[in-house]
């Protein structure tokens, strides 16, 4: 069985997008994701908002993908290992035309393609189902390894949380990626410093994370993950890199970014806003804090 398709390049149409435009896209994704969570009265706004800029940069600029052909074999892969942040990914997929935008109003509802955590069988554009933390990077390692073995040049991006790094499996995957010199793999850490039960620093501190990743054999970048200019610059460096090593972006972010009462607040990990909070949030996202 083989599903290797034609080798024609069919993606790569959205490359020359300015930082300003990407900022607009990120704003739009934030508003869409928050609307989805508000309408569903269920979901995880904090980690969706912290990751919005990284996700916007990937989908609108970096990834070689084709929304008309979600399973195109040579596409770049994106794995949302922190699956609970999926509304931000769904927003991007919906806006890019992977599915009818009307689905964006069905988050977490019975029969929806937009499950509470990403389901590759139900939602076009999801490269692997996630939701149980710590597992996405291993799948990304498998995909990146398959590319190497078969001489394909697609790349694999995996977005993890920082709390998620508590999981031992992450470090198993990190060691494998390094051992196998998977330079086509980029691990992005949405480092928003908060996990469900409290600040990561007070639970299981990750200590010199960037240094740790470097010592594990990764090419590392530590950036402001809510600064679009820095994100784009870093992705460009990664694309041009010839070190032969897997990449890690330790992206310092703010949980709940863009909504004053959610920013850096533990309580907004997995809670939906009420009507008044939603209105405030949409105003703040529109004009910027």
């Amino acid at each position: 069985m083989s599903n290797i398709g034609s080798r024609t390049k069919r993606g790569g149409k959205m490359k020359n997008v300015s930082v300003e435009e990407l900022k607009e896209r990120a704003k739009e994704l934030r508003k869409t994701a928050l609307t989805m969570i508000y309408e569903a009265q269920s979901g995880h706004p904090g980690g969706a908002l912290s990751a919005a800029d990284l996700v916007a940069a990937l989908y609108y600029r970096e990834l070689n993908i084709n929304p008309k052909e979600p399973r195109w074999p040579e596409r770049d892969r994106f794995i949302l290992s922190k699956g609970h942040a999926c509304p931000i990914q769904y927003a991007a997929l919906g806006r890019l035309g992977y599915f009818e935008e009307s689905h964006l109003h069905t988050l977490r509802q019975e029969g929806s393609i937009l499950q509470g955590h990403p389901d590759m069988k139900k939602c076009p554009g999801i490269d692997i189902s996630t939701g149980s933390l710590g597992q996405g990077l291993s799948c990304g390692v498998g995909m990146a390894l398959a590319a190497k073995r078969r001489g394909e040049d697609y790349r694999v991006f995996v977005l993890t949380g920082d709390g998620e790094l508590d999981e031992g499996q992450i470090w198993e995957a990190v060691m494998a990626a390094s051992a196998w010199k998977l330079d086509n793999l980029t691990m992005m850490i949405d480092n928003n410093r908060l996990q469900l039960d409290g600040p990561c620093e007070q639970l299981i501190p990750h200590l010199n994370l960037t240094q740790k990743m470097r010592e594990f054999g990764f090419e590392t970048y530590e950036i402001d993950g809510n600064d679009m200019g820095e994100i784009v610059e870093t992705l460009d460096k990664i694309k041009a890199s010839k070190t032969g090593r897997p990449k890690c972006i330790n992206a310092r972010t703010v949980k709940g970014k863009g909504v004053s009462y959610m920013e850096d607040q533990l309580g907004w990990h997995g809670m939906a806003p009420d009507e008044e909070q939603y209105r405030t949030a949409m105003e703040e996202l529109e004009r910027g804090l």
Binding site: S138, C139, M143, G168, Q169
Partner: peptide, 22 residues
């Protein structure tokens, strides 16, 4: 592929490989 003594990663790597038709 040998993932070393890392069952959890082995399972995930296999899943990733399988998404490509392996």
């Amino acid at each position: 592929v040998n993932v070393g003594i890392a069952e959890q990663n082995g399972a995930g790597v296999a899943a990733g490989l399988a998404t490509t038709g392996i």
